[in-house]
């Protein structure tokens, strides 16, 4: 029983990471039709900026409020990079989908190489607050706190995103844009401002995922973004492009499936089951679980 609780919480922690990366990907794809390979770069930028801030930024540190400040700095860095990428690199190629994908591919290759040049190819030990290493007892299982931190952060982001999409004017524009971009443009609304906003939101969520994955794995490396990104892609496709709620449901399914099969089957079998799940969902519902609609 205690094993099952621990596995569930760990799987949900993994799902939280997937969701943080996938929500931004999903919104960007749903609204702007950009398949963003550079999203893993935003994650790495967030992780490295947090790592840097914890060591160098005055007031920030590896513990307590200092760590919160370091994470905030990382999220800010990810947001700024994502917004800049949209403004400088994606916007000139507006409505040329393939070229946009190509540019993000080039950016992901060059960005990882630049991070390697700056910080070295080897993983760096990540500063983690000491309390995240403690355990609490839940239903007889000893659960490390870092997993709960991941889950709480993801639920908070999910709630904030849903509230933003449902109750703000820009949320309305984004929801309408995902459904029918031409109509929104025809109504005289500059939908490209919403593109930048969606990129910034996605970058912030990915950077938060980067900082939290640093806490979870205990280290940060230039390629850590790429490995999470592929599973985030799978989550986006299963959940349905453009649907935040769909991404959340798919992330939970993928995280739990992966964790349980990897534990009870041979190592690596869980990853393959996830791909099998993707194939089944696509054959059954080609548009994903939620279809193309920004459900809020």
């Amino acid at each position: 029983m205690s094993t099952i609780v621990l596995m569930t919480v760990t799987g949900l922690g993994l799902a939280a990471l997937y969701f943080l990366v996938a929500s931004g990907l999903s919104l960007v794809f749903g609204l702007a039709d950009v398949l963003n390979f550079a999203h893993g770069l935003f994650l790495s930028v967030g992780a490295y900026a947090t790592w840097w801030a914890a060591g160098n930024l005055p007031g920030a540190g590896p513990d307590g409020w200092g760590f919160v400040l370091a994470v905030a700095f990382g999220v800010l860095a990810g947001t700024v990079v994502a917004a800049l990428v949209e403004l400088v690199m994606i916007r000139p190629l507006y409505s040329r989908t393939i070229e946009q994908v190509l540019v993000t591919v080039g950016l992901s290759l060059a960005g990882v190489a630049a991070l390697q040049a700056g910080f070295g190819a080897d993983p760096r030990p990540f500063p983690r607050p000491s309390w995240t290493q403690q355990v609490v007892t839940m239903a007889g299982a000893r659960v490390p706190l870092d997993r709960l931190l991941l889950i709480v952060a993801a639920v908070a982001v999910l709630g904030a995103l849903l509230a933003f999409l449902r109750w703000t004017r820009y949320g309305l524009i984004i929801r309408a844009g995902v459904e029918n971009r031409e109509m929104v443009t025809a109504l005289g609304i500059d939908v490209r401002k919403a593109f930048t906003l969606v990129f910034a939101i996605g970058g912030a969520a990915a950077a938060l995922a980067g900082a939290l994955s640093g806490v979870y794995f205990g280290s940060v490396s230039p390629t850590s973004g790429a490995s999470l990104l592929i599973f985030a892609f799978i989550v986006v496709v299963i959940g349905g492009m453009g649907s935040v709620l769909g991404s959340a449901v798919a992330a939970v399914a993928v995280g739990l499936l992966q964790q349980f099969v990897n534990y009870y089957g041979t190592s690596g079998a869980g990853d393959i089951c996830v791909v099998a799940l993707l194939a089944v969902v696509l054959l059954w519902r080609p548009a994903g679980l939620a279809g193309k609609a920004a459900t809020a």
Binding site: M89, L102, V103, V105, G106, L107, S108, L109, A110, G111, V112, A113, A114, Q116, A117, G118
Partner: peptide
């Protein structure tokens, strides 16, 4: 960055 071939090639590609 210049000592990373992929950085140079990625930039050329973009």
């Amino acid at each position: 960055p210049l000592s990373q071939p992929l950085f140079v090639l990625g930039t050329i590609f973009i």
